[in-house]
């Protein structure tokens, strides 16, 4: 066997590789780009979901914006205070803790409490269902419970319980994807610390609400009258709480005749109120 049949390809290919390698090594020095080390460090601290809740194109975009000083160190709403503190360390500034917000489904009318207008057997998706007469739910404002938000959530924080979506405030990162996708606009921001929330979105008069849902806001204004700090207001036949002044005293929760106001004792206990 001719020895050169093996040697020739090795030498020719290896030689070419060597020449190109040397050329690239020279070029990489000549065209070296200085990268801010902090960008990589910040990028490593960020959650990496690339959800875009910060307003920048992905985590890389936010990382370089923070390093350049264009974005605040607490710019990532998903990472919250922990991430902000870490980024603050990298950037050498103290991070202001942002008041954490979470998404909340403002509807408690599950299948046992709110009926159906008709039987829907189409595509199992809220957006599709809402296109048919606004969905099959008796309440035109309520959660359809087909889980478009569950699919939109990248953090697995939403599940459907008895036909109504529930968001786990511990897992919610406030990226806002569910709020964007919900065709009923029944999901809204609620402060993480807030334990008293009006879980009804129906803006119809009380008489109609009473006919379709057991736990709807019927516009009786008992909560408004009984609130010790006057933080509950009334608009479009629906009560709403001004979260800034609410003391989470639970008076309205106890007084509400239809139990349309949710009082979460867990949150109250956790905060030691």
């Amino acid at each position: 066997m001719d020895f050169r049949t093996i040697l020739d390809p090795i030498i020719s290919l290896g030689g070419m590789g060597l020449i190109f390698g040397a050329g690239l090594a020279y070029a990489s020095q000549k065209f070296a780009v200085e990268v801010d080390e902090r960008v990589t460090e910040i990028r490593n601290v960020l959650p990496g979901a690339n959800c875009g809740a910060c307003g920048y194109p992905g985590c890389d975009g936010l990382a370089s914006a923070i390093a350049e000083g264009k974005a605040p160190v607490n710019g990532c709403p998903v990472g919250g205070a922990d991430v902000a503190a870490k980024i603050g360390e990298i950037m050498g500034v103290k991070a202001d803790a942002q008041d954490k917000k979470v998404a909340k489904v403002l509807c408690d009318g599950d299948i046992t409490k709110c009926g159906e207008k008709f039987q829907y057997e189409g595509i199992q998706d809220c957006v599709a269902a809402a296109a048919v007469q606004g969905g099959s739910k008796a309440c035109p404002y309520g959660c359809l419970g087909l889980g478009s938000c569950v699919e939109a959530c990248q953090f697995g924080a939403i599940e459907i319980v008895q036909g109504v979506a529930r968001i786990d405030p511990e897992k919610c990162t406030a990226c806002g994807k569910c709020i964007e996708v919900c065709p009923k606009n029944v999901i809204d921001w609620v402060p993480y610390k807030q334990s008293v929330v009006i879980t009804c979105n129906n803006k119809d008069p009380g008489k109609i609400v009473r006919g379709i849902c057991e736990v709807g806001c019927i516009g009786c204004r008992i909560c408004v009258k009984n609130c010790p700090t006057n933080t509950i207001e009334f608009e479009n036949n629906l009560a709403f709480i001004n979260y800034d002044n609410c003391t989470n005293c639970f008076t309205c929760v106890e007084k509400c005749p239809t139990k349309a106001i949710e009082g979460n004792l867990e949150i109250k206990q956790r905060l030691g109120l």
Binding site: S12, L13, M16, F20, G21, L24, A27, F31, A32, V33
Partner: peptide, 20 residues
């Protein structure tokens, strides 16, 4: 094999130039 080697090296070079 040879052609891919040549193309790969060129692409690397172009990448550096564009990044710069």
């Amino acid at each position: 094999v040879t052609f891919i080697l040549v193309i790969a090296a060129l692409v690397q070079f172009v990448e550096m130039v564009i990044q710069k």
